[in-house]
Amino acid sequence: MTGGYGRGPDILHSCTIAVNPGEIAVIVGPNGAGKSTAMKAVFGMLNVRSGSVRLDGEDITTLTPQERVLKGMGFVPQVRNIFPSMTVEENLEMGAFIRTDNFKDTMEQVYSLFPILRDKRYQAAGELSGGQRQQVAVGRALMTQPRVLLLDEPTAGVSPVVMDELFDRIIEVSRTGMPILMVEQNAKQALEIADRAYVLVQGANAHTGTGQEMLNDPVVRRSFLGG
């Protein structure tokens, strides 16, 4: 994919990102490398000028974000990703807004993935802790039963303990067979759980491989992971 915002200059340069079922793919890179931009390109919030975005082989490059949700993309924005004055359960219901079938089973699944949400289901989501809110946000996105889940820096601004907990949850989600594409600031931890990792530098793929390969790659270690 190559593209940029509006008519601005290209920020992404022939950047390639993919994720397969059951996998966790992680995009890492230094500040300003275009990590979040790459995610936005996948989700259709960016002008992709050449290249394409495909979901299960279907070309969705020209679709709006809303249409991509209908096609089966689940997106969790980095900030403002919940409905704060609504209860946890209502948040999940709103996640399932486009579904016309019965979504009780999906809600059960989400509750079993994130047990804490079941306990707090009648509480306003805005009153929860940072980590719990992120769980609500991921849960909300799962309610559409997406074919792929995009997470934009899910651990931004949470404590290390909560971060570990969140990563555990994400692994569990992935075990249900859900492909997950994630942008992460905390490169080291993210690479540890990644099946596939993309290191972006200046909007282009710099290194690609499994998480473990990246962690072992001396170049990557030196430049991003602090030795």
Binding site: P65, Q66, V69, L70, F75, P77, R80, N81, I82, F83, P84, S85, M86, E90, E93, M94, G95, F97, I98, R140, T144
Partner: peptide
């Protein structure tokens, strides 16, 4: 009601409401 809740959702967080297909 679903419509009522979607109104509250829209009031709470317009962008996310759009993403949710409201």
């Amino acid at each position: 009601t679903r419509t009522g809740k979607s109104m509250r959702a829209y009031s709470d967080n317009e962008d996310l409401a759009l993403l949710s297909g409201i």
